[in-house]
Amino acid sequence: MEYLLHILILIGIYVILSVSLNLITGYTGLLSIAHAAFYGVGAYVAALMALNLHSTFLVNIICAVIVSGLLGALVGIPSLRIRDDYFVIATFAFQVITFSILNNWVSFTGGPMGLPGIPQPTIFGLQVSSHLGFLILIALFCALTLWVTRRIVRSPFGRVLKAIREDEVFAQAAGKNVAAYKIIVFVVGAGMAAMAGVMYAYYISFIDPTSFTVMESIFIISIVIIGGAGSLWGPVVGAVVLVLLPELLRFLGLPSSVAANLRQIIYGGLLVVFMMWRPRGFLGEYAFQSKEARE
């Protein structure tokens, strides 16, 4: 039972991560492999504050969202100037730099040793300590993420995002400040990813840089793609599939290192398979058609 709750919590975290990345990549067409950086920054800000300032959960999460949002704005800036495949490289750079800071600034972040002993969160007087408690908390944040995203994508704002995804020139000629939209969407996406990071930090009560690597970013983008870029529920489906699938492998009784490899081979394989036969994923709308072709 505990195990089941643990899986559901993980799914919840990845739902938040993938829905937020979907806003950036699926709806606005900005492919980014920097999302684990936002996730990690959120986790570290909350953890550092909880451990050093003993501040409350609410304060920590707000700060985590703000700091991650600022990083998001930074990552968004290159998208104003450089083409989409070069932009992916830029996001790759941000991801590596962020990981490097988390891993090497030992005096501040604990370096490879990470930050242990993160206290349990107390919200409105209630201490969250059980798996069930965390699951409820995560579910609330998932709901918040989905609600915010749904509001955005079904609005005129969301319409502009889809326009930018297909043809920035048309959007500009229609009076839309494309640069502002891109930065905003990165700030919102990064902020939501930070929430997932905060949840992760409190739940596991220990964080280290190895949870926030390039491979993690690639995993999150795989969820978005396989679930379906540009659809609201696609990432949810993707998160469920990609978190559950490797768990099913446990029942095959493989040694754990091979199981870890097999898990990655599966989602790498799914990525290739979907690119070849259904780039828009299970439920998606956007198949990464090139904007450049129209210039």
Partner: peptide, 10 residues
């Protein structure tokens, strides 16, 4: 536009 720009996905 000369090359007819529209948002085809909308």
């Amino acid at each position: 536009f000369q090359d007819l720009r529209l948002i085809r996905q909308l």
